[in-house]
């Protein structure tokens, strides 16, 4: 599987990382090599193997429905970049 420059741009966008245009071909080569390495696993017959959801052979424990967390707005907003009227302010999100 070959990773194209356009794939690199898309992956960077989804991960919200800024990358320099001139670095893109290098990333594409590296990621293509990684994919080739992982592709070796395609040789394994996994037809009768149940997909693994978690590496631990354990089951989720459940907690009782009890309110246990106090209001920590003051502490949390003390370290937020910007707040107003109890709200966290972020760059405008327009849909």
């Amino acid at each position: 599987m070959s990773i194209e420059d356009s794939d690199i741009k898309k992956i960077a966008h989804l991960a919200r990382i800024s990358i320099a245009e001139e670095d893109i071909p290098g990333y594409a080569t590296e990621l293509t090599n990684i994919m080739a390495w992982v592709e070796q696993m395609n040789a394994v017959d996994t037809d009768h193997i149940e997909p693994m959801a978690h590496p631990l052979h354990a089951v989720q424990r459940l907690r009782d429905d009890v309110v246990s967390e106090p209001d920590l707005r003051e502490a949390a907003q003390a370290i937020a970049p910007e707040t107003e009227a109890g709200l966290y302010l972020v760059p405008k999100v327009i849909e």
Binding site: R63, V67, D71, R73
Partner: peptide, 26 residues
């Protein structure tokens, strides 16, 4: 429910903004 699906913060409607958001929710 009284508390959130993955944390012990309250779910009551109409509370002061961000007064029912704990570290997990944040």
């Amino acid at each position: 429910t009284k508390s959130k699906i993955f944390s012990g913060a309250a779910t009551a409607y109409g509370a002061a903004p961000n007064s029912q958001a704990c570290l997990v929710d944040l």
